[in-house]
Structure formats: C-alpha cells, structure tokens
Simulated scan of single mutants.
Amino acid sequence: MTNRSVLVVEDEENLVEALRYNLEHEGYTVLTAPDGGSGLETARAALPDLVILDVMLPNLDGLEVCRILRRETDVPILMLTAKGEEIDRVVGLEIGADDYVTKPFSMRELMARVRAMLRRPRKTASARMAEPLRSGSLAVDVDAHQASLNGEELRLKPREFDLLALFMRNPGRAFTRDQILEQLWGHDYIGDVRTVDVHVRWLREKIEVDSSTPARIITIRGVGYRFEG
C-alpha cells in the first residue's frame, strides 16, 4: 500500500469515479477537482504527488493549468486528451506535461503510467534552479528575483517583475488580458482588467527605448499583448 496522493482534474463525473475507484484500489489517496481553477487551487494547497489533468476543462483549460503548475512545481502531470487531438498532446508535452493518454483509454494502461511516473525521482531543489531568461540586453533571474537591462539592474515592482518573467518565458506568444490576470493575479481576482494595461505601461517605461512606440511588448488590437524580445 502507498500513502501517495493523486489529484484528478476532470469534469466528467463517471470518469472521475472510475479513476477514483482504481486509484484507491491501488492504495492512493485521491483528490478531485471539476474544473481548471479549482484544480489549480487544490494542487497548490494539497501538494499531490501526481496530477491527472484533462485538457478540456471549464473555467481554465488543462493546458493553462499545466503551464502554471510547471512554473511553480515539478509535480508529475499526466494529461488526458481527446482522440485525434495531436496538437493538444504536442503542446501539453512542450509546456511541461510528463506523459499523456488518449481517451478512450484502458484503465490498466493508465494505472501502469501512474505507477511508472511515481517511480521516477523528483528533481532536487538545486536541479530546479531556473536558468536566467535572456532577450538581447534584457535579462531576468527568476530565482534571484533580479532583472537587468544593458547590465544595469532594473527596479521593478513585484507585479512588473512577474509580468516581465511571464513574457520572457513565452516569447512570441499572444496573451489576452484575462490570461495575464489569471496567471499573475489568480482566477479569483475581481478587479478591473485594465490593471494589466497599467502594469504593461509601467513595464514599458522601464524596458523600452521609447515606450510610446514599443518594440518589445507589442499590443495586439482586440487581443492583448505579445513579447517580441
């Protein structure tokens, strides 16, 4: 028997119960969440040993949950994807999922994947130290919480630092304001979405040659922002 815990983030009740039955039969403690937002909260609070994460979820999709979790922890993540959705599998693995199974799947196969993933050693704290993020003369050391431009330290407020790190981890990716709010302020934030615009403006004033014609953080009309480096 084992005292390890598994978090199942899945909105199909029948599948949740089937997973719960089989996981508990193997001796695992099972936690469940019906949507991405509550799944993220549960993962942060309970620190499970493994997360089984569906891609298609209400509130916050599984790919975003995976991206956020991988930024915060090295917990093993097993993605559940729909048959034929190769793009979900590829993106999931690229953003940090450890493995995936395609629906409909054999419960025996899934349990074998779970056992194999839990046998893998977790990274040590020293191995998790992130490499500094670099884009030309701009550098961010997430572990040291330091940023510099042309070798000079940037004095950034905490949210500005987090925003810059988010952009530099995802060069070329378009973010909506809601996605930025979700990742930096949390899904339960109830303030004005324009707070993102304010922080982007402040950040531009510190990293752009001319903040009125930005070359690093680009506004995408009707969408949000993209970091060009």
Rank of each mutant, 00 (worst) to 15 (best):
S5P: 10
V6S: 03
D11E: 07
E12P: 00
L15C: 02
A18F: 04
A18Q: 14
R20V: 10
L23Y: 03
G27T: 07
V30M: 07
T32V: 15
P34H: 09
P34G: 02
G37W: 00
G37R: 06
G39N: 02
E41S: 00
A43S: 13
R44A: 13
P48V: 01
L50S: 08
V51M: 11
V51T: 12
I52G: 02
M56I: 10
M56K: 14
L57T: 05
P58I: 12
N59V: 13
D61Y: 01
G62Q: 13
E64I: 03
V65R: 06
V65H: 05
C66P: 02
R67A: 09
L69R: 00
I77F: 10
L78Y: 06
M79A: 03
L80M: 14
L80H: 07
T81C: 13
A82N: 11
G84R: 03
E86R: 13
V90H: 11
V91A: 10
A97Q: 09
Y100E: 06
M107S: 02
M107K: 04
E109D: 14
A112I: 13
V114E: 04
M117L: 15
L118S: 04
P121T: 10
P121H: 09
S126C: 00
R128S: 07
R128E: 14
M129C: 07
A130Q: 15
E131C: 03
L133C: 06
R134T: 13
S135R: 11
S135D: 10
L138P: 09
A139M: 15
D143P: 01
H145W: 00
A147W: 08
L149V: 04
N150A: 12
E153G: 00
E153V: 04
R155S: 14
R155L: 13
K157H: 05
P158E: 09
R159S: 05
E160I: 13
F161C: 10
R169V: 03
R173Y: 05
F175G: 02
T176I: 08
T176D: 07
Q179N: 11
L181D: 00
Q183T: 14
L184P: 01
G186E: 04
H187V: 13
Y189V: 08
I190Q: 14
V193D: 04
R194H: 11
T195V: 15
D197V: 06
V200P: 07
E205F: 03
I207Y: 06
I217L: 15
I218V: 14
I218W: 01
I220Y: 04
R221K: 13
G222P: 06
V223P: 03
G224S: 11
